[in-house]
Nucleic acid binder design. Sequence first.
DNA 1: TTGTACGCGTTATCAT
DNA 2: ATGATAACGCGTACAA
Lengths: 342, 342
Amino acid sequence: MRKAQYTMQDIANQLGISKSTVSRALKNHPDISQETKDAVNKLAEEMDYQPNSLALSLRHKKSFVIGIIVPEIVHDFFANVISGVQSVAYEEGYNVMICISNESPEQEEVDVKAMYSSRVDGLLISLTKETKKLKHIESIVNKGVPLVMFDRVSENINVSKVITDDFQGAFMATDHLVKQGCKKIVHLSGPDNLSISSLRLNGYKDALSKNNIPVDDNLIIPCPEGTLSEATKTMKSIINSNLEFDGIFANNDVTAIGAMNALKELGKKVPEDISIVGFGDWRLSQLLDPPLSSIEQSGINIGVESAKLLFKQIKEEENDKEFTPITKVVQNNLIERKSSIK
Amino acid sequence: MRKAQYTMQDIANQLGISKSTVSRALKNHPDISQETKDAVNKLAEEMDYQPNSLALSLRHKKSFVIGIIVPEIVHDFFANVISGVQSVAYEEGYNVMICISNESPEQEEVDVKAMYSSRVDGLLISLTKETKKLKHIESIVNKGVPLVMFDRVSENINVSKVITDDFQGAFMATDHLVKQGCKKIVHLSGPDNLSISSLRLNGYKDALSKNNIPVDDNLIIPCPEGTLSEATKTMKSIINSNLEFDGIFANNDVTAIGAMNALKELGKKVPEDISIVGFGDWRLSQLLDPPLSSIEQSGINIGVESAKLLFKQIKEEENDKEFTPITKVVQNNLIERKSSIK
DNA sequence: TTGTACGCGTTATCAT
DNA sequence: ATGATAACGCGTACAA
């Protein structure tokens, strides 16, 4: 038995009243008599009436949908961000439309247009690695759609941004190792062209300085690819070169794991001989043997903070107020398993 | 400089023509003169006109959006499913609206209603662990919205379903171990109440039988919680009990890792002494030391197949044809690192 | 207390 | 080749 898709008009017809009365009854308008309300509600229930939010959105010029565009989704960080965004959106009574640009600037452009076409009330976006042109972003911003960029942001546009504090995270990680008694800490650094690499490197250097430990350039080992095999290979050659060190701060979780594998393979014990802290996914870290300490790029927090900022902006927009773009910096969390620290 | 949100009417006014002409010009209707088209397109470009798909959807009673509801998103399987769905949807010219029920049946109900409210043209859903009532599902199905359930499906409703072949996967895993020379294969089994547990157990048993290896109930070890600590603890006691075995087929990736940790801790070598194959996330498996062979629950394939089935259904619906629900079974993949197999 | 009429942005139908 | 009008489903100012 298939029911049709009823509208208010259908209810009105069956009850011999006008659709405006139905509309008012449904939203419990004080002018409507109780018996009319009862009749309408009863029939609506029977018919399993559900409002058409397309019509609503068109009417109100407001969709109660926010959009989010991420470069990829099969990645704990972005999945966490989305999760955080969702939770805030639900509280505000908004739905979330998600697009995955798949690291393609062309797709990103299409996505932004699609988002505007469906008249999202606000947009969250993390840019593709290759995004250079920002015309599509400017376009939607010019139309007055509140927009917040997160994590992969661009400096060439004046919009609100939410980013993680890579410097602070790196500082925290290095400081943590020092506090554990490490004196000679290796840093597995990331690719030069990414700003996160230099931020993390600087955090590492700064933590050493603050602890009166001289920075030794020999301890800074580049791992530009950031792959497991590269890290493993690099670490092995470092160990074999008899470089002395008692701790490792890895630029990401994969290099941290690679380092651990290399150490174990060459008979070193983690964390008894060498302590490791890496940036990245702590869930992964916890499954390792032994679990690693890790600096979590707190995806959920990024999501929550971005969404909050967006809604703030949406509300200002509704009240025709000026909104000055803000850059929010979210702190990283050091996830630590005590047992894994020497 | 903020541009307004222009409509066709705005273009028409500026050009002193009617909005219907604009509409036709924009979609390159043959009746319209070339010069009018040029003028319209030029102005549309200048104004950065973007169509309002809300109005379009209302008009056509078709939104070109499909919905997907997943219980969680911070989980490689579901993230992969979404990724697969997106790729198919893009090809078909559809957008995807994602909701996360967060394993809450109440949220799931809200989500389904929201999806219908925004008049998605089709819905993909994987149920919450606790979902018992299916009224919300029946409701949207009765309204004629094409729906496909995937992975977490219910037997109590006649809709299209896409599931993984757990039996086949378990068979494949066990058979693989036998082919590697294993004779006494332990199975770490899952919770009794889930059908996947018994399916996997049966696949395990069947593979042994087909290879003329008697099933030994002592080798079937329950790990109902499926946690790392449970698996580690259980495996240790098994090893200490001097039970003889040379291979492990784990019900999931986490128990596989737990087993590996236990083995290594007690001085056994993987895979030299014991080979392990687990169901689950192969990316995780590859980061382990040594990498584990794993039976991947192919999320992308599930996503792709589900979406394809949904679009098939959407098209039949458009042509007022009958559509008989189908259950599709997606095969699992064995992800293998040759080096890790003895 | 309820009904009428209009508009949100678009397209299809029917005129001209 | 172009314009006027109605319709999609809803809410609301205005009228009764």
